[in-house]
């Protein structure tokens, strides 16, 4: 039912929020103008005035929370110690590695499962995307139609997709089990037993991730000049050789960043493991969902802050290796 009071309340709240934001920005700019232009007479004052709102926002909502989280991670803050928490040093970090993160599951199995989850998903995203892109990269009828249908899982809101699939994994009424029964196999307990549940998560996420890779790769394939293939043909190269010696190397500048991005997105994917795991099996949690549960179901804030930092460092190491091996950050300097 449409609640008119709530409607008005939301309007006034949003109006006041916009007002507050505008006010903050105006005050900030005026201050900077006075200090930089009138007082210090800095030459490029405009630059600082342009970037300052973004920097202020990031300072307040990313840097400050991150630093503060570092502090919380060294306290015993929890629901019962919300205001009277005390400093306990690095004990939380030790606990992350020695004690169960949730009820039973410990850190290392979670890490391996997350890595497995990431590897499986990215592998199928890339191969599936590549196969579909290769198939689509030719003059054919219905090409646009296929492309549109293939993009649909990407366009569908993730929450909707995840919950729809959850219904399809229902033991009695989901179509997967109905189909299995019709061809005479035994239905699978997708929601309640660990391995099938993990498999279900992977299936859904693979389905969701392939369109993105297909579209990106298709764009890349179209930019490869046909002359390379003609030259290879003259030399009598087979299709297979052409793929490995021409297509893949030429696609590298597009594939590397999309694989890196895909890896990080999959590693951090929250919606799919959270929603497909209907009965909150700990055996299906990956790091990010375990972090959510540790924080908001077990209310161990100090502990989960430490846990979050451990995850952050894993990602940091990964991106450092990535930046070093690919030289991705070189372009920033120019």
């Amino acid at each position: 039912m449409f609640n008119f009071d709530a409607f008005l309340k939301s309007l006034s709240e949003i109006g006041s929020t916009i007002l507050v934001v505008v006010l903050i920005v105006v005050v900030l700019e005026a201050l900077l103008y006075l200090i930089l232009v009138k007082w210090l007479k800095v030459k490029n004052a405009l630059v600082y005035m342009l970037v300052s709102p973004a920097i202020l926002g990031l300072l307040l909502l990313q840097i400050y929370p991150l630093l503060w989280e570092g502090y919380i991670s060294m306290t015993n803050m929890s629901l019962s110690h919300f205001f009277n928490y005390s400093f306990i040093g690095l004990r939380n970090y030790v606990r992350v590695f020695t004690e169960p993160v949730l009820k039973q599951v410990t850190f290392l199995p979670l890490l391996w499962r997350t890595i497995l989850w990431t590897l499986i998903n990215v592998f199928f995203h890339v191969t599936g995307g590549m196969i579909l892109a290769l198939l689509l990269n030719r003059d054919m009828k219905m090409r646009g139609v296929y492309r549109m249908f293939i993009i649909i899982p990407w366009a569908l809101p993730q929450v909707v997709a995840a919950m729809a699939w959850r219904g399809e994994f229902n033991y009695e009424y989901g179509w997967i089990n109905v189909m299995l029964k019709q061809i005479g196999l035994t239905p699978v307990q997708w929601m309640t037993s660990p391995t099938p549940n993990f498999a279900a998560m992977c299936l859904v996420n693979i389905w969701l991730g392939i369109p993105f890779m297909t579209v990106i790769f298709l764009g890349g394939l179209q930019s490869i000049s046909g002359e390379f293939y003609e030259a290879a043909e003259m030399d009598g190269a087979s299709n297979w050789q052409k793929f490995w010696k021409i297509t893949l190397p030429m696609m590298k500048p597009i594939m590397t960043p999309s694989i890196i991005l895909g890896t990080v997105w999959t590693f951090n994917n929250f919606n799919i493991p959270f929603f497909i795991n209907q009965y909150e099996l700990e055996s299906s949690d990956i790091l990010v969902t375990a972090l959510f549960r540790a924080a908001f179901e077990y209310n161990r804030y100090g502990f989960s802050a430490a846990f979050a930092y451990v995850i952050f460092f894993i990602l940091l190491i990964y991106s450092a290796i990535y930046a070093k091996t690919t030289g991705a950050l070189k372009g920033v300097k120019d």
């Binding site: 909502l61 990313q62 929370p65 991150l66 919380i72 990080v264 959510f292 804030y301 802050a305 952050f312």
Partner: peptide, 13 residues
């Protein structure tokens, strides 16, 4: 690279 989940505890508090 930072997961949203990383910031949820401090943002919540």
């Amino acid at each position: 690279m930072i997961p949203t989940a990383m910031l949820m505890v401090p943002l919540y508090i």
